[in-house]
Design a protein around this nucleic acid. Structure first.
Lengths: 182, 182
DNA sequence: TAATATCTGTTTGGTAGCAAACGAAATCGG
DNA sequence: CCGATTTCGTTTGCTACCAAACAGATATTA
């Protein structure tokens, strides 16, 4: 149903094709990928300007709080993993959350290299009153989609995530399990 | 077809529901939104570590180069708009691209507040050899999807983008054209 | 034309994000 | 035990990103 009906896109497609000369252009893939990125930016921006700003939280800060709420006290490395952040970035995010009084760090006695992060009372109160509102906001963001479409969208994206997260640079079969390459 | 088959997700859903008590959880929306974000992160990371790193470009830098290539010399404000960046951010991105020798700034004589940005020879060479490779990479990212699925994904995301970009905080009809609110 | 308002890009101050270097702590090999 | 290696989290240096304050140029209007 009227895919590519936007004349702006047709314009762009024609212009790109001109620039490319006779090289092939995979327009469908281009549009899919760029829309993933634009949607993420729009959704994040809207969240940070709306719900999250009232609590002084960024997207990453919220995610971290949420993970701690759902899974409980965690070690830094696991937390970084669960939040999909590098450990260096996580140190910064936790530092900010700590300054705001939402979380606290505890050095592990049995292995003093390790540090665990947990919610403070204030952090718990915050996420408990914030999450329901955040979930409502999520509902608004995909409010134009039916339930089936939401599930379809999530599933299509899941397949993209799996591909993008795969280790290999060109991944022939795509089932290499973290093989080290010299 | 086996939606929510991931036991990890069922676990999470149960845990969240426990934390929420008897408040309602819109799991479908949550999953859709969080997958949008995770897919964007994965896709961006993969691009920056792969194709883009060879050219010393970030995602934003690439986008800017691409826009200039397709649409030609542009004024800063329009460029920021087209790249979906704030004007302040664009200043920084252009500064980096300038340092790398990809673009150049020109002050407009007829209105000396304005500045236009255009590709240098090196910038043109770069985007011309980079884009085909980037487009291949885009194809890989959505390589598990059929053409119809790519179009379906793009269309679903387009609807999310429209919703998230809408001005109003709760936007009754959602057709307000940038109305100023006091 | 002179005061004022508006528009343009830049700067500033803050957070986020990554990779790589780092230092402290634990573990392993002899 | 003791030196070497590995495993932690943090720090560092860089880029990106935003909002808000800013300064210079242009428009407006009295």
């Amino acid at each position: 149903m009227q895919k590519r009906a936007d004349p702006r896109l047709l314009d762009a497609e024609r212009l790109i094709q001109e620039r490319l000369g006779d090289r092939r252009l995979d327009f469908d893939s281009m549009l899919a990928v760029s829309n993933i990125y634009r949607a993420a930016t729009a959704v994040r921006r809207r969240a940070e300007k709306g719900v999250l700003s009232e609590f002084g939280l960024s997207w990453g800060g919220f995610t971290t709080l949420w993970v701690l709420w759902v899974w409980g006290e965690m070690q830094t490395a696991d937390l970084a993993d669960e939040c999909d952040l590098s450990k260096g970035t996580l140190t910064g995010v936790v530092k900010t959350l700590e300054r705001r009084g939402f979380v606290e760090r505890t050095r592990v006695e049995s292995d003093r290299r390790r540090v665990t992060v947990s919610l403070t009372e204030a952090g718990l109160d915050t996420i408990e009153s914030l999450f329901p509102r955040f979930n409502l906001y999520e509902g608004e963001m995909v409010g134009e989609l039916s339930t089936a479409e939401k599930q379809e969208l999530a599933e299509l994206l899941r397949r993209v995530i799996v591909t993008a997260d795969a280790e290999g640079t060109e991944g022939a079969e795509g089932e290499e399990e973290k093989v080290e390459r010299p």
